[in-house]
Amino acid sequence: MAPLKLDSVESLPSPLRAQMLERRAVFEASRWLDDVLKDPKVQMIELELEAYLRTRQVVGYHCTREPEPGYFKRHGLRALSLQEHQAWFLATHGHHFTSEEREKIETAWDHYFVGQQVKARQGTLWFCLTAETVCDGTDALFKYNGGEAVHKPLRDEPEIFVKLTSIGRPVVVEASVAGRDIGPHQRLALPALTAFHRTIRSDANGQPSEGRIVGSITPGAVLAVRSPIQFGLSDV
């Protein structure tokens, strides 16, 4: 079966959609999903929908810069290992930097990535779970090569930052992700409920939806590699 897009009503099983239609008045009463979820029946629908989505493959959007055309289709997306990723970055792109700049980069990495800064990232991959979220606070991921594991500690080095913008091209990697693998803190049902809510009233409030997995994405699970322009971003 094709992976489900969480921001589409097509991700809703027909029986649950029928139950939601029975609560149409509740969805009509407020543009805020938090208000809608105060209804006990809608709460039950959310729980059932969440359980269902955890059994399915869903579409995730990874925002990054592609080192060269076709890279992610060939290699997939690897879970972050800070040391391996940083070593790969310098081995692949280190020729863009002077020896002094390379020393600054490595020193900044060593000072910044300690303790929680490592624990929060190591072994994980982050995804936007709706197309709308791709446009929300992702500018730096598109602009600077290497992701946060490279650029985060280098904000005070403008010459290095400029070079990071010249490596690769901004892309959105669309991938098939197992719902069960997405961190339990992320409620997968909310984007789908929002999609339904918007069929009832166009001003229904959306909210950024993202999640992380522990592990990598194989090349076969990469569905597409798209330009951010296709998601409405024009200044990346």
Rank of each mutant, 00 (worst) to 15 (best):
R23Q: 15
L129G: 02
E210W: 13
G211I: 00
Q117M: 09
P191Y: 03
H62P: 03
P191C: 09
L33G: 04
S81K: 07
D110N: 10
T133Y: 00
F142P: 05
M20R: 03
L188G: 03
R226L: 13
V36N: 02
E22M: 03
A29V: 10
E106Q: 15
R155S: 15
S176F: 02
C128A: 07
L49G: 06
V214K: 14
A79Q: 05
E174K: 09
V173T: 04
P13D: 15
G232N: 12
S81V: 13
L33N: 08
G147T: 11
E46S: 08
T107Q: 15
G168I: 05
L12H: 02
W126I: 01
T194Q: 11
R74A: 13
E106T: 13
R187K: 08
A131R: 14
L21K: 11
Y52A: 06
T55Q: 15
H197D: 05
E159D: 12
I200F: 10
L49Y: 01
S176V: 02
N145Q: 12
P170Y: 10
Y112T: 00
W88D: 05
V42K: 14
S176K: 01
L4S: 08
V9Q: 01
P67L: 08
A221P: 01
T124Y: 15
R24S: 13
R65T: 02
D203K: 00
R31E: 05
H96N: 12
F196V: 06
A149D: 10
W88S: 07
T98S: 15
P40F: 08
K104D: 06
L223H: 02
L90K: 01
H62M: 11
W32M: 08
V59S: 07
H93E: 12
T194H: 07
R23C: 14
K104M: 12
E28S: 15
R31D: 10
D7G: 00
S209Q: 11
I45L: 06
V9E: 01
A175Y: 08
L154K: 00
V36S: 04
P13E: 14
H93A: 12
E159Y: 04
V114W: 04
Q230E: 10
P170N: 11
Q230L: 04
L80C: 13
V114A: 11
P13Y: 12
S30P: 04
T130G: 00
A18C: 11
C135V: 10
G147I: 07
Q86P: 03
L223P: 06
Q43W: 01
A51G: 12
R169T: 14
A178Q: 14
L16K: 00
R226P: 01
L164A: 13
V59D: 09
E50S: 10
P219E: 13
A175Q: 05
H96P: 00
R212G: 07
